[in-house]
Computed example of a mutant assay.
Amino acid sequence: MKHIFTCLLLILVATLHAQINPGAPWPDNNGNHIQAHGGGIIKIKDTYYWYGEERRQGLDTAFRYVSCYASKDLMHWTFKGDVLKLSDPEQLGHHWVLERPKVYYNKQSKKYVMYFHLDSRDYKFARVGIAVSNKPDGNYSYVKSFRPLGFESRDIGQFIDDDGTAYIVFEDRPNGFHIAKLSDDYMTVEKDMSLVKAPMEGGAIVHYKGLYYSIGSRLTGWDPNPNKYATAPTLEGPWTEFKDIAPPEKRTYGSQSTMLLKVDTTVIFMGDIWKPREQWNSAYLWMPLKIGEGKLFLPEPAPWKIDVKTGAWSRMTE
């Protein structure tokens, strides 16, 4: 009887959450709030994998954890476990930092390559770390850390172009933020495509109808701010002036950019609503953008759903 009740409860939860509710608790298949903060998504065949910072309560503070979730529809997510459990890899000391994990699949090596921001408590280490796995859902093994092209690197973002070329976006506090191409094996950074000389972090890029759109967040720490966007005909630029993605007084509806996910003709803004004193309760703001002809706008968040086969989406109030 207990087993039947549990099954019925899970079915009810799934039915109630056959949509995306920006800013609300987002339960996984076990009914737990998804812990994939500062994350990134890749698609392997018909399955999306979402990686992020594991922030649940009760974790061993000697380690840092990266979680993984899988979905076929972007609305229902199955927890695949903590695919990276890492002790201090570079003797960085107490309160060392692992943030914004992003995973790429390398067809050449058939390896899954995870990049993340690796830092000391005072944020002076400023490097990327790399871990690899033979499977998308781990386990991942730490390989090394480095400063991409010799520059400081803090917040990172990922971008995979329509031709499959992989890039990393990284924030270099003294100079701006870089858009850089990964090497063929994804184990290092090969070429700087652009240095956008603006004080921005949380970089995210999408290629849409022949134009590149770049989003970034101002440097205000945990506090939300008006995120901005610029466009360019190529990743090398030239980039336009940055403009607001939403009414500036809304401060991006309390969120910070982390990724732009393209599903056919729909582009989804993925943002984090950070709660620094209750990081395990930090939420997600996912919302389709109004985008095209050099313009980009983040609408007022509202429940919505998507058909991943066609990219068609609709508000639940329609």
Rank of each mutant, 00 (worst) to 15 (best):
S120R: 01
G38Q: 00
T310E: 09
N134S: 14
Y112M: 13
G93K: 02
W286S: 02
F146V: 00
P248C: 08
G202K: 00
R100P: 05
T47D: 05
K45E: 13
M259V: 05
F177Y: 15
C7V: 14
G203S: 12
G129Y: 06
G38A: 02
L84F: 01
Q19W: 02
E152I: 05
D60L: 00
I273D: 02
M1K: 13
T310D: 03
W26A: 03
P288R: 07
F116E: 02
P276G: 12
E190Y: 01
P303N: 06
A232P: 08
E99F: 11
Y49S: 02
P148W: 10
Q279I: 15
P299I: 04
F116R: 01
R64F: 10
Y49D: 03
S255Q: 01
W222F: 15
G176I: 12
G58A: 06
A283V: 10
A126T: 09
R147V: 00
M75K: 02
C7Y: 10
T220M: 12
H178T: 04
D60S: 03
A204Y: 03
Y105A: 12
Q279H: 13
H94S: 14
Q35A: 15
E249F: 11
F125H: 06
D28Q: 08
K45I: 07
Y69W: 06
S71G: 03
A24N: 12
Y229S: 06
K305W: 09
F125K: 07
F151R: 12
I215K: 05
T188N: 11
F177G: 08
K43G: 03
A230C: 13
T266W: 11
V97N: 04
V169R: 05
R315M: 09
C68E: 06
